[in-house]
Nucleic acid binder design. Structure first.
Lengths: 211, 211
DNA sequence: GTTAACTTACGTTCTAGTAAGTAACTTTGC
DNA sequence: GCAAAGTTACTTACTAGAACGTAAGTTAAC
């Protein structure tokens, strides 16, 4: 049903060149945003003209989608990798990812900038991020369900809030960390927050905010 | 010491016009970002030419800073309002703000987009957001200190992580909520997360992630 | 000898900013 | 109280540059 499968694309040199371009695009879009970054800058970084990039990807829009979906090799969240951890190991994995990300400012910045930019009207990445968050929330919620089952407790309705909140802290801490790395310890702060949220789902405490 | 205080600016009609422009800028920058939004669009919305806007603010850059610093009237975080709540009331205030924000998508979007965009290189809003987060973290940390003192407990070192984390969840949940309002209950999710974090500072539990 | 991987060159559109002009309102001199 | 002078709030018109995209040509691989 899809038009034409491209077998010609399979030439190894060409594939490597495309990878170079995507890598450069991650860096440029990460440091300038999608709207602010230009094909020219990306082209300069891989040593060709901007028309050469359009030859490979057709449009800036298409290049962005390639950047977003083919981040596999240099993954940020690593959730969709070979074997997705589940249950408690998932939460440990998320914390570990935060510690690793503290040494990968480039990719982190690309995701922070592009995900927030995607909420703007008609942004080409909007659909991608909407589905990504939905899927990630689902995986985290599932991990909560597994953990609850393991401990023989009913799944509290807070699981939905907690799943969104975990992703939210991770993203939000990245913004603060990017703005001032010396002010925020990305790994430890993420660890603290995830522990707090997980604990609050498993052993609900009376609200400390109640008057 | 400052050059010349402008008394002419105090003309009420002019001030109102400037407010109109700033309001329009919030909407445009919120829906398209700073880089993506144009003076033309802002001008259209207030019914003048883009040169008219430059007459008032001098440059697009300066208009952005005005948008960021003069959000006072339609405040998002409301922290710097008349009397800053402190101690436990601050946390309640933050939760209340989240519930209110759920009905103010426009301004929320402006802040989400601009704060994330500000991490890009040489962004004119970078300095603003860096200082803003620093100041907000400080206020939240102070509230924690007050609460600890009230209960006669030592301030745990987790206060720093918790302060950053609270701001982070608020921001991160806004992103997810803007992408899909039906999937995230902004108010309740924020409430849950803040309660979890506050509780975790006041009554530290053994890490649920420990193997 | 066809296809892929480019480059050069061009077109169109759009951008922020500037310069100069104009109408209206304020202030000042008297 | 009123006219001259100055200031403000714009507009129109322009500049200079950059952006993405396209079309056509060129070299090299298979």
């Amino acid at each position: 049903m899809a038009g034409q499968r491209r077998q010609p694309r399979s030439r190894p040199e060409t594939l490597a060149r495309r990878r170079d371009i995507v890598d450069a695009a991650v860096e440029i879009f990460g440091s300038k945003g999608f709207t602010g970054g230009t094909l020219q800058e990306i082209a300069d970084q891989v040593g060709m003209t901007h028309a050469g990039i359009l030859h490979h990807f057709g449009s800036k829009h298409a290049l962005l989608l390639e950047v977003l979906t083919h981040r596999d090799e240099t993954d940020v969240a690593d959730l969709e990798e070979q074997h997705i951890p589940d249950g408690m190991p998932l939460f440990r994995h998320l914390v570990r990812t935060a510690f690793i990300n503290a040494h990968r400012a480039g990719i982190v910045q690309a995701y922070v900038v592009l995900s927030a930019e995607s909420v703007t009207d008609d942004h080409p990445g909007r659909d991608f991020f909407q589905k990504r968050y939905e899927s990630l929330r689902g995986e985290i919620a599932h991990a909560f369900a597994v953990v609850c089952a393991e401990r023989g407790i009913d799944e509290p309705e807070t699981i939905g809030y907690a799943s969104a909140a975990i992703l939210a802290v991770m993203d939000g801490l990245q913004v603060q960390w990017l703005l001032d790395p010396s002010a925020v310890d990305l790994g430890r702060a993420t660890e603290f927050a995830i522990e707090a949220i997980v604990d609050s789902v498993l052993s609900p405490a009376p609200s400390p905010l109640a008057e």
